[in-house]
């Protein structure tokens, strides 16, 4: 029997967080020049949106790629519980030294989420898109 194509489910979660752009590898003047208003000492914040794509075969009995409750549980535990109402630079260890740009958030989720999602859903994490505002997003295809 021919295998049917895999289908990608994209689930969205939201979190609100503060961040600040500053690099220890740059001087005060360089930080100011490169990051501008994003370098201000007390940070600022966004309502982030994260779209996670998970692929798999549609189960012929249930008609589903996965049980969405399994995916939601992982996203709630690994994303919302950790990131919502946090200050990314201080509360997420990875961003103590990595600048929490939209790009680096996408790369981070692309690296840390797949094993959790694959264990919980049996699906393959295929894409991640991080929206910082309604006019900017970064994405990674896995």
């Amino acid at each position: 029997m021919a295998t049917s194509p895999s289908v990608r489910i994209i689930r969205t979660v939201k979190f609100s967080a503060a961040h600040r752009y500053a690099s220890a590898k740059l001087s005060e003047e360089e930080n100011q020049r490169v990051f501008g208003a994003c370098y201000r000492p007390h940070g600022h914040g966004h309502n982030y949106r994260l779209d996670v794509g998970v692929e798999g075969q549609v189960d012929p009995v249930t008609g589903m790629v996965m049980n969405l409750a399994d995916l939601d549980r992982v996203l709630k535990r690994e994303v919302v519980a950790r990131f919502d109402h946090s200050f990314l630079n201080y509360d997420i260890e990875h961003f103590a030294e990595t600048v929490p740009t939209c790009e680096n958030l996408a790369l981070y989720f692309a690296r840390v989420l797949p094993p959790h999602i694959e264990v919980a859903t049996q699906g393959r994490m295929a894409s991640v898109r991080v929206w910082e505002s309604d006019d900017l997003f970064a994405e990674v295809e896995l």
Binding site: Y21, V99, T101, N104
Partner: peptide, 13 residues
């Protein structure tokens, strides 16, 4: 690829 120091693919301005 994002710049390893700034984390920007390209500065927004």
């Amino acid at each position: 690829e994002p710049d390893p120091v700034s984390g920007f693919l390209m500065p927004r301005e």
